[in-house]
Simulated scan of single mutants.
Amino acid sequence: MSLITKKLVRALALGCAAMATAQAEDIIKIGHVAATSGGIAHLGKDNENGARMAVDELNAKGVVIGGKKYRIVLQAEDDAADPKQGTTVAQKLVDAKVQGVIGHETSGTTIPASRIYHDAGIPQISPSASAIQYTRQRYNTTFRNVANDEQLGAALARYAMQTMKAQRIAVIDDRTAYGKGLADEFIKNVKRQGAATGSSIVNTQYTTDKATDFNAILTAVKASKPDMIFFGGMDAVSGPMLRQMKQLGMPLRFMGGDGMCSDGVPRLAGEALADDQVICAEAGGVEPSQEKGMADFRVAYRKKFGIEVQTYAPYAYDALMTMVEAMQKAGSPDPAKYLPVLAKATHKGVTGNITFDARGDVQDGVLTIFTFRNGKRVKLAVVK
């Protein structure tokens, strides 16, 4: 055998070995959807980064399901927080035959997309959509690992009335599924419990998630002489709103939910943000015994991406880890086989212990109350 022939045989053998290895490592495709363009792109990318951290960690360790080795591929899509684009992207993921979906980020896109995933039998875990309607559609494929607006609105109302001693409260929302849903729950709880604390809703106003001029509604709010404003919406709107409040001489306390509880608020509000003026809550949180795991995650995130966690990266991370663990316990990445296992999940994550109720809501969901001081987010309390 000539030297050239020997080299050819060796090359063919190596090629065949490489093909065998590639065939032995099957692929699991998991979709991720968030708004990675537009006004809340920084939040959407945060979610995506959390999911990517989980994928990279799993692939580094090696994923074995039913005795076979798999490599996980994240198919990340952008819905721009637009419901129409959200359904288009959902159908794209279905056509790509993903075996699960992490997302969407916002309630307004998550809800219409959930029907498409349900019809295709694809499990979906949202790490950030909090609107009640999402899990009230009776779709067995829908899950979330954060508290919902019913829990969030009630907790914020209690904090506003009992801790902040707010008496005259004005409410503004951005008319999105998330903003309106959260504001409605807050109003409902103030009306239900306000008699005991002397608290009441004195004004309600509406804007949009694309608005930049709030002078008219803020002038109307100012005339009602509130001592606090509750806002249902995102940081991209709340930051500029705080700036215009300062211009109008309205140094009022300003409360909202997870959408305006990011590290982007100081940047967006600038000098208009006074210490302890803003109170907000994340639809999630960890008890003292779990704080080390969350702190370690934040360090690893900073090392990997060179930036700080914005809001829900750890929840996206946990959502993907929970989904893959269900596949491993079921012995298959086939959605039809691992879906019943996912519904009974008991995953110990960095954000806490994750189990779902009959609707797909996380059980015993907790919330974290924050404020801002010296341009930094500061934790005040973990509540249920």
Rank of each mutant, 00 (worst) to 15 (best):
K61L: 04
K6F: 10
G86C: 09
P340D: 12
G233A: 04
F186I: 02
S224K: 14
G31M: 11
R298C: 02
K344I: 01
K344C: 13
I72K: 11
T176S: 12
F231K: 00
A166D: 10
A283V: 01
R52D: 02
A336L: 10
T212S: 15
E48N: 14
D364G: 11
G15A: 15
E282Y: 11
K97M: 05
L8W: 04
K191A: 11
Q328K: 15
T5Q: 13
G257A: 05
M1F: 12
E150L: 06
A129K: 04
Q193N: 08
Q151F: 07
T36K: 06
A11T: 08
F305W: 09
Q137H: 10
I125R: 01
G44Y: 01
A196F: 10
T208P: 07
Q290W: 07
N215L: 05
L320F: 12
G233Q: 13
D334P: 00
M323K: 02
S130F: 03
V33I: 15
D56L: 10
G103T: 01
G293D: 10
A113T: 04
Y338L: 10
A41Q: 03
I122D: 06
I307W: 00
M228N: 00
K337I: 00
L152A: 06
T21L: 15
Q151L: 07
P335F: 03
H42Y: 13
S199K: 12
A76Q: 09
V146G: 06
S332M: 06
R136A: 09
T141V: 13
P314T: 07
D258T: 06
A20H: 11
A90T: 13
P123E: 08
K191M: 08
D334I: 00
G264N: 15
N353L: 14
A90N: 09
T141Y: 15
R71N: 09
F305I: 08
Y338V: 09
S114V: 05
Y134R: 02
R52E: 08
I125L: 02
N140F: 02
D149V: 10
L8C: 09
F186T: 03
L58V: 05
S199G: 02
Q310H: 12
G249V: 10
T87S: 04
S200Q: 13
V146F: 07
G232M: 07
D209Y: 05
T21P: 02
G284H: 03
K344R: 11
A381H: 00
I28W: 03
Q290P: 03
Q247W: 05
V366S: 15
G194H: 04
R144M: 06
I116E: 01
A223R: 15
M161S: 07
A13H: 03
T207S: 14
L58M: 15
F305Q: 08
D119S: 12
Q247F: 01
Q247A: 14
T88I: 14
Y134D: 01
A170G: 13
G121V: 12
L93E: 06
T197H: 11
G198T: 00
R298T: 01
V202C: 14
I30Q: 12
C261A: 14
T135Q: 11
N148H: 11
Y338I: 05
E185S: 09
S128Q: 05
A24Q: 13
A216K: 14
D78I: 05
G198P: 00
